[in-house]
Design a protein around this nucleic acid. Structure first.
Lengths: 267, 267
DNA sequence: GCGTATCAAG
DNA sequence: CTTGATACGC
């Protein structure tokens, strides 16, 4: 099975590029982030004509996630809703507030639970949005813990807006401690991974300099001033089975690209 | 000599189309309206590389006129400035106010005075903008009268935002009396033409149904629901010499076209 | 509908 | 730098 993750920065603006990429790279599952469109306006048909089932959770202008899948998904749910049915672990008013931003969608394919995430950006360390990001990651951990109870085989992927270590950003001396590379963010991510997830990309490639996001500003892509913030995390059995994981930089080279490029895992 | 007029609705957005059209139709003079760019940002080089001299009078966002010419123009001036040096005919404070909107540019080629105009749209009959349009046309008449004293051979062209008679709009029963086809506008135009100008297009084509503008809305071009509001008016000697005048609808058929298409006169 | 400007977000 | 929303002009 091949699963990919790609922050497309507007699925409507990037539609042709996403379709072209799927023709070239017919993954079983494509997880999209920053679709920036409400479900009613999501361009379903082009993907359906390509043979994909389409599952969306979108809002106007911001955020938005979707899963495209060559087979139907089972038990699709959006947001942190599954936590609501549990009592006690997280306050339900907080969950309702968190779910206004469409950042989570999940579904099951062949007993594999696929969780597609768009982690908050966080703006700047210490900002209100930064606190929101850290709080969101805490809730995410509870969410994933509850999901694992039902589905021990999991692939948790998406735009994490966190570079796990110094190999994952182009100028660690300058950028460590800044947003996406601060210790509290990395610690929150490690606590999530401690539930039993491992980075599929790092099973195959140990060295730094491989990035999935380059800022539109300052001609960052041309100069390869990137970050690796788009990840595929696997539970132990799937990690064991993983046979490849790679970043495909080609879409980032097109005219009018997304600032992110796809990452694929095969197991 | 071939002179063309074209409201391009942003010269920067339409640059490639204008360049392509000039390659296909290498007129001596091209008068542009709605350039929507200040002079410092006008894309001069592409036209200069094509062999054209470039004369501009633009503002931010709105209006803006330019003359492209295969030979240098003499005595270029912008706005109603020439009226300022005359005393009495029009109040100078009014002229200063009128000239904030960049709608007039003129220059001389081979003793022919070329006046390029973007007449105010007028919004709706009876509105403040309608009164502005009628006032502007009154000043235009004084301006042209003064220009004629120096240059009896004149071509006055541009987007007049007036359909002179019932042949010049697709539904005269419905549209006569509305903006661009109201009697005060037509009367103001006739008073200007009474200075001694004649419509080059009507020297050759008497029937209706030939249009230069189609609203972007309601698929007006596909249904040919147009208006003939872009004109080339000639003083008697030039009118006598005119050998052709035509509307070229091809640019209006392109993707992302201007809502206007060029009109050309040859004499 | 299609331009442009401005704003917020990334 | 790029996106989408809003506002305005035509």
């Amino acid at each position: 099975m091949k699963i990919a993750t790609w922050n497309v920065n507007s699925v409507r603006t990037r539609l042709e590029q996403v379709i072209d990429w799927l023709r070239q790279t017919p993954v079983d599952v494509l997880c999209l982030q920053e679709t920036k469109v409400v479900d009613a306006d999501f361009p379903r048909s082009p993907f359906e004509h390509l043979g994909y089932y389409v599952y969306t959770s979108g809002q106007k202008s911001y955020n938005g996630v979707a899963i495209l899948c060559q087979q139907p998904l089972q038990d699709v749910s959006t947001g942190f809703a599954p936590l609501l049915v549990e009592s006690g672990s997280v306050e339900s008013e907080l969950l309702v507030a968190l779910d206004e931003q469409k950042r989570v969608i999940t579904g099951t394919l062949d007993r594999v639970r696929i969780v597609n995430l768009y982690v908050p950006n966080g703006a700047a360390v210490g900002s209100e949005k930064y606190d929101y990001k850290l709080g969101w990651l805490k809730v995410l951990r509870e969410y994933l813990r509850s999901q694992l109870l039902v589905s021990p085989a999991m692939c948790v992927c998406g735009d994490f807006n966190i570079a796990p270590d110094e190999r994952d950003l182009h100028d660690p001396d300058k950028l460590t401690g800044q947003i996406m590379a601060s210790e509290p963010e990395r610690q929150a991510l490690r606590e999530i991974l401690a539930l039993g997830f491992a980075d599929a990309f790092r099973k195959f490639i140990a060295e730094g300099g491989h990035y999935s996001w380059w800022d539109y500003r300052t001609a960052a892509f041309r100069r390869n001033l990137g970050w690796r913030i788009d990840h595929l995390y696997l539970s132990p059995e799937l990690y064991q089975q993983a046979i490849a994981c790679w970043i495909d930089p080609t879409p980032r080279k097109l005219p009018k690209p997304s600032d992110h490029t796809p990452v694929v895992v095969e197991f």
